[in-house]
Nucleic acid binder design. Structure first.
Lengths: 417, 417
DNA sequence: GCAAATAGTTTGTTACTTGAACTTATTGGC
DNA sequence: GCCAATAAGTTCAAGTAACAAACTATTTGC
């Protein structure tokens, strides 16, 4: 029964808890493991000692524990350049731990199994409109995929450290309850408990979080080690969400609902929104809004979401459909306006367009860049860069699995037994 | 030469630095001192042991160090109720350390000396328009006040742990450089170095930060222990700024410029702003904008800022001047719109109106509450409360001094020698 | 073949928390 | 008035983890 908080913040780093001797070692295990994980090349014990400031003796002892626990592997000593005894290379042992990323979204359910090195060992997606199912049915479908992934992990003897579930809605981080997923029509549901209740999943450490947050984490991991460690990830799907990453940490706010950008006011005279206000970003830059403005769906109907629509959108944009290009120009401008407000508040200077926006990046980026350039106050000193996500539709499940793996890397002591 | 970072983050809590034995004790010293500081009543060693989980032996040892270092004082054992040896009460020793809060603002310079218990030992304000002075002159004026405060500290044998300087502009947290203070007309100035260069101040550990950020910290300390630990503090002066506090920590963003709310777009058809956009919050809810809309100053002129204007504003509002009330209504609505955007992004559910807005709270709060109620998405689950700051004009210097004291409380080991 | 260089291990030391026994100081029953 | 009960605080041996320095292992270069 792993609580959300435990995963997010290792015990020994909390300011109000006393420190113990054991905590020192736990912390240093994490320091050493992180060096090994972040290095592009295999590193030696001596390297680690030099870069961390720990003595070689201590590093040796810590590395021994990590090797014994299966989280680190030693490579055969390779011939070195220069004099001296050759170093034994240390790498993260992929087989040491695995994690599941699970996503229940509007029109698909997906699962992936990733090992400690970040290699995807298994991946499975079922395209099906979840709005037509009850929550119980949707969760049962997800459980089916999870069991298949667990079976695969079992087959290759990969111990699964846990799973994270991504959902398109507001998840209360203290309780894990999904307060509302407007586009699924779900509210006040303990989806995590529901998934836990499925046969075979009761003992799986399970965390739940918002899809945009996890996609942002996925982007963070994918961009390592050269990518930015602070950025705002814009998740464009039916709804519009943002995940804010600052210094490599997801910014959650007090309840875990940080980055609610969908209802940013972009146009006072704009169309009314379900939230009660007018001209919310979602009404201008959401997928349906773009389709509607481009005359591709009738004003009152709901789009058939998913790949078909996104594909059609792309085709028409490629073909240069003037109405669509105009709609994209307006969407990009609105996005730029909204994200400028966010950047001014959270003081970040990279924007990553994800989901649908990544696919439409070619047409959106210029408008976003233009708005950002004169609206973001710090831009003059720290120019804002606007880029496109490299992960595509897998960002959320990759981030979800990555969040679990990160928990292992941040607190390896908990996984040594 | 205390770096900004050192003050903000104790060494042993950084994730990439190795932990040492010494760090355990340093951390536990902080844990114990915090218990003593946060308790409303004097606590005993046994109390601390029970609440922290440390053993009585350890607590005794730690407390001894703190008493020896002058940070904690023992009270005469008071007659207890019930059997057993009476407890020796422990309290934070006010005389253990003091800190200076310094503020250079548009129309005044202020300094305060606060001891470890939060008691103001000395306070001094000089009202003078700083825009007419060169930066060097303004800093020399501030140095004069600082020397007087240091002399007072010396007189009462209060060791000064450091000072924090509050300025109305963007301070780059890595370097401490004031990038721009629009209303002072200053830019790219190392004000901290300037102040350090003044006679008698060279050895004073000095930090610099934005005025709204520090005012927010002041509000946080003043509201303790029952007040909210997460809120957005709106600083209404000539400019409009915000300080964001989340779980008792100031949110700074990547460069320390978090909370730039003054240029939040509130009205696309609004008046042009110096930043190049139209309808920025500052153009509707800044002090000059309110005065202008109420017909109290001519459209093109600059107001004579400061107490005189704020007093006049209050008088007229009390008198029910219809034009002013209309301007305040519009300002409150704009504020509510802007702060709603901020709340949605940073997920906080308390707003504190400070500075001029605190004085005008009676007329602004209803409009802000109205906007927030339907624009903030989490409002339905976690209702947003809008309150008024209790600190008035001293918020920034109190927060500035408090930031230094907090550094002592968070890392007492550094102050024991 | 031997010195220099670099990697990794061994061993005794030091710093800190722990746990249990011990001392101190008070209340309350007899 | 005495003594058991109770609670606060101290002392001290034990355990754990990092450290420093000496030591072993393995290579290059002359």
């Amino acid at each position: 029964m792993s609580s959300l908080v435990t995963v997010l913040l290792p015990v020994e780093r909390r300011a109000d808890r006393p420190a113990r001797q054991q905590g020192v070692r736990d912390h240093n295990l994490a320091v050493v493991l992180r060096r090994i994980a972040e290095a592009p090349q295999p590193v030696s014990r001596a390297d680690i000692a030099a870069t961390t400031g720990l003595t070689r003796a201590t590093v040796s002892s810590l590395v021994d524990s990590l090797v014994a626990g299966g989280l680190v592997a030693e490579l055969a000593p390779e011939p070195r350049t220069g004099a001296g005894r050759p170093a034994t290379g240390l790498v993260v042992a992929g087989a040491g731990a695995g994690a599941l990323g699970v996503e229940i979204n509007i029109d698909y359910v997906a699962v992936c199994l990733v090992d400690l090195t970040g290699t995807v060992r298994y991946r499975s997606v079922v395209i099906e409109d979840q709005r037509r199912l009850t929550p119980a049915q949707a969760v049962a479908g997800a459980a089916e995929l999870v069991r298949a992934a667990l079976a695969t992990a079992n087959l290759v003897s990969l111990p699964v450290a846990g799973a994270t579930l991504a959902v398109p809605g507001l998840v209360e981080s203290r309780t894990g309850i999904l307060r509302v997923a407007p586009n699924l029509g779900w509210h006040d549901l303990d989806v995590r408990a529901l998934l836990w209740g499925q046969p075979g999943l009761g003992s799986l450490p399970l965390t739940i979080d918002n899809e945009a947050n996890l996609a942002a984490l996925g982007e963070l991991a994918a961009a390592r080690p050269d990518g930015p460690s602070s950025f705002v990830y814009l998740s464009g799907e039916i709804g519009v969400g943002a995940g804010i990453v600052i210094d490599g940490e997801l910014f959650r706010g007090t309840h875990g609902w940080g980055g609610e950008i969908g209802h940013f006011p972009v146009d006072h005279a704009g169309p009314p929104c379900s939230c009660g206000a007018r001209g919310c970003l979602e009404q201008v830059a959401g997928q349906e809004a773009i389709l509607r403005r481009a005359g591709l769906i009738a004003p009152a109907t709901t789009s058939m979401v998913g790949q078909p629509d996104q594909g059609r959108l792309l085709e028409l944009a490629e073909a240069g459909d003037p109405e669509l290009l105009q709609a994209l120009e307006e969407a990009g401008t609105a996005l730029g306006l909204a994200v400028s407000g966010v950047l001014n508040v959270v003081d970040v200077d990279t924007v990553v367009l994800g989901g649908l926006y990544a696919a439409l990046g070619r047409w959106l980026v210029p408008a976003v860049e233009r708005e950002v350039a004169y609206r973001v106050i710090p831009h003059a000193w720290h120019p804002v860069s606007v880029r496109v996500s490299s992960l595509g539709g897998d960002a959320a499940i990759m981030g979800a699995a990555g969040a679990v793996l990160r928990g292992v890397l941040d607190n390896p002591a908990a996984h040594l037994d």
